[in-house]
C-alpha cells in the first residue's frame, strides 16, 4: 500500500528562487490497484515518485510505502519497491544475468534464490537468449525486459513506474503496459506516471491529475467522466488543470 500525506517538496534555485515542485499532495493506493499520475512535463510527477521511492526527502508532509515511513525508514521502503523509469538505465558492460544478480545481492538475497529467481523471470519474460550477453549490445526490447526483471528480482510488493514508455516504440511500450497489468494481477500496489492519456485510460484504476505540483483532481475514469460531464480524458485533463469547469463533486480535490 502507498499513502501520501500532504507531500511537499521545495527546491531552491539560484536564479528562480524557491520552487515548489510538489505541494500538499495526498493520495492512497491499495494493493492490486494501479494509480495513474497524469500530468504535463514539469507538473511534479517525477518528484512525487522520487519522494515515494525515497530518492528525495520531502520538505513537509510524509508518506508510508508498504507500511514503512519514507523519511525514517528509507532503506526498508526501497527494499519493498520496484522502481522503473525512462531514466533508469542498465549498466552497459554487465550482462543481463550479472545485472539481476547485482540487484539481487544489493537486496540481500542469497545466491541460490537469485539464480532461481533469474530463471523464473527469464522464463516469464523470454530472456534466455540474451541472458549472458552484455546490455550495451541489446535492442530496446531486450533492455526493457532486463529492466523489468531488474525491478522484480526481489519481488517487491510496491511498483513505481515513472513514464516508463517514454521514447519507446509501440511494441516495446506494449510490453511495459502488459507487465504493469501483470503486476496488478499479482496483487502489487502500482503507481504509474505518464502524460499519455490512452495509457491512463487503458491501465489505471484511479487517476490523479497533477499540475504545478498540486493534485487537482482524482478518481476512477468513470467518476471523473461523471464529475466533469465529459467523456474524453484529454478534455477532462484540460478542464482540471485550466480550471475551465468546476468539478461537480465526487473524489475530486479542490483546485
Amino acid at each position: 500500500m502507498i499513502e501520501a500525506r500532504q507531500l511537499t517538496k521545495t527546491f531552491r534555485d539560484r536564479k528562480r528562487g524557491e520552487i515548489r515542485a510538489v505541494e500538499g499532495v495526498s493520495f492512497r493506493v491499495e494493493p492490486g490497484q494501479i494509480y495513474g499520475l497524469l500530468g504535463a512535463n514539469g507538473a511534479g510527477k517525477t518528484t512525487t515518485l522520487r519522494l515515494l521511492a525515497t530518492l528525495l526527502q520531502p520538505t513537509r508532509g510524509g508518506a508510508t510505502v508498504a507500511g514503512f515511513d519514507v523519511v525514517t525508514q528509507p532503506a526498508e521502503v526501497r527494499a519493498r519497491v520496484g522502481f522503473l523509469a525512462a531514466s533508469t538505465a542498465l549498466y552497459a558492460r554487465l550482462t543481463a544475468r550479472e545485472t539481476l544478480a547485482y540487484f539481487g545481492r544489493l537486496n540481500g538475497m542469497a545466491e541460490a534464490d537469485i539464480a532461481a529467481r533469474t530463471r523464473s523471470l527469464a522464463d516469464d519474460l523470454g530472456m534466455h537468449d540474451f541472458l549472458d550477453r552484455r546490455c550495451d549490445k541489446f535492442s530496446t526490447g531486450m533492455k526493457q525486459k532486463t529492466s523489468i526483471a531488474r525491478t522484480l528480482i526481489h519481488d517487491p510488493p510496491v511498483m513505481i513506474f515513472d513514464e516508463p514508455t517514454l521514447g519507446l516504440d509501440v511494441m516495446a511500450a506494449r510490453t511495459i503496459v502488459q507487465f504493469v497489468r501483470e503486476c496488478r494481477a499479482r496483487g502489487k500496489t502500482v503507481i504509474y506516471s505518464t502524460h499519455i492519456m490512452s495509457e491512463v485510460e487503458k491501465l489505471c484504476d484511479v487517476i490523479g491529475i497533477i499540475h504545478d505540483g498540486r493534485l487537482l483532481a482524482e478518481g476512477s475514469l468513470a467518476s471523473l467522466r461523471a464529475s466533469y460531464r465529459e467523456n474524453d480524458l484529454e478534455e477532462i485533463f484540460v478542464q482540471a488543470v485550466g480550471g475551465l469547469a468546476a468539478p461537480a463533486g465526487g473524489n475530486v480535490n479542490p483546485p
Binding site: A53, T88, F103
Partner: peptide, 13 residues
C-alpha cells in the same frame, strides 16, 4: 547514462 538513478532506488544507502 542514467544508471545513477537505478542504483539509488535499490536498498543501498
Amino acid at each position: 547514462r542514467g544508471t545513477m538513478e537505478t542504483i539509488l532506488c535499490s536498498p543501498v544507502s
